[in-house]
Design a protein around this nucleic acid. Structure first.
Lengths: 208, 208
DNA sequence: TTCGGTATCACTCAAATGAGTGAGTACCCG
DNA sequence: CGGGTACTCACTCATTTGAGTGATACCGAA
């Protein structure tokens, strides 16, 4: 059974030649090509594609919204971004919108075919420079610019898990008042005045 | 100039056969292989490898610490995790520690070679299932599987910012008790029983 | 029109929390 | 040895919070 593919790209020449290229391969079936993604939801619902190739820069709704339309309508459809942008902002917006792959337009056709196969197999094809950016985004290690002591970090971890002072005391085998003392010190160091603020700050600034 | 490679893996048989395999390729130079990563920092400083293949499950320091040692000592060295684990926890710990790639041990040799070339070229080789996990981690698509109402989402946002019930009431221009009523409903829907837990759950599960 | 959901508000009560103050022990480092 | 830091614990006090109960008003769907 051929892989059903739809392309959204406002560059007519590129889109058509890409469609032509895919049609020459027996394992793919082009079920649609569009120069905008306004109707992406309807199109997806009607044609049930296995794979969608989505450009970003299109008139009207951008491809970032296009991803949302497709994934909200039919989550099992794999969406591969196919664009010239290696801009961080757009990249992460696409990923957050649920894109399953991200290939730059400089990708040679054979690699594009590989990517389609990979995404069908449950993978996530990415151009090397993109994959690197994605992994780099994880390297924001705990800074600890607030000079929390080891014990305070332990307490903060439990606090983030939603533990009350009493539970923290029991968990660390210290007295209730000691747990509260640690919490007070943590709040001072983080310049907050409640556990809720501390949790927000800790999670937001990746302190832990 | 050959690519200088070091392997850390406590499986002697696998490590040695891998080293042998790499030695047969003229473009690679094996400059070391170790069954633990205790001295990874020193080894990295002395031998200046271009690429490090790092297992996770090793006696003593785990490969996750190994990544830290290598990247702290010599950031320009690329570290590729090479392991059987596709466990989420370990995966993201490795990425946060600065790994530049993540290949499962089931990867055929040719793909491993490709991965080494890719990482040298500035890419981030990942096994398909890993790449998919990584991209999935970005899909903060507000799931709202807890059926929060629009108003409750507003309240939750303020709660996450550390606002007290009184502040939420003032901010939304509603009474103190109404704000508390919304909070109580939110806690019920999230199956928690404190604001701290709600914040933890909301941020942890990317509800908002 | 009735029913359900949402949003609003009020009251009570026990428990938890934040803030302040003080103090003892242990350890490392100079 | 002395000083600093971390960790521990106790007590008070006002405020906040979670939980329970009940009520009113609006709106859209059945």
């Amino acid at each position: 059974m051929p892989i059903r593919i739809i392309i959204f790209d406002d560059n007519d020449k590129l889109r058509e030649s890409l469609a032509y290229l895919l049609k020459t391969q027996p394992e793919y079936e082009m079920v649609g090509e569009y120069n905008n993604c306004k109707e992406a939801a309807t199109i997806t619902r009607v044609y049930k594609p296995d794979v969608v190739l989505m450009d970003i820069d299109m008139p009207g709704d951008s491809g970032i919204n296009g991803v949302r339309y497709v994934k909200e309508t039919r989550p099992q459809t794999s969406v591969i971004m196919y664009t010239v942008f290696e801009d961080d902002e757009k990249l992460f917006q696409c990923l957050c919108a649920g894109a399953n792959g991200y290939l730059l337009k400089q990708t040679p056709p054979q690699k594009l075919f590989d990517g389609i196969q990979e995404v069908i197999a449950g993978g996530a094809p990415m151009s090397p420079v993109i994959a690197r950016k994605v992994l780099n985004s994880f390297q924001h290690g705990k800074s600890n610019k607030y000079f929390l002591t080891p014990r305070e970090i332990e307490v903060l971890h439990l606090l983030i898990k939603g533990y009350s002072a009493k539970m923290i005391a029991a968990n660390l085998d210290i007295s209730f008042d000691t747990a509260r003392a640690h919490l007070k010190n943590i709040y001072q160091k983080l310049h907050v005045n409640s556990g809720k603020e501390a949790i927000g700050k800790a999670l937001g600034e990746h302190i832990v």
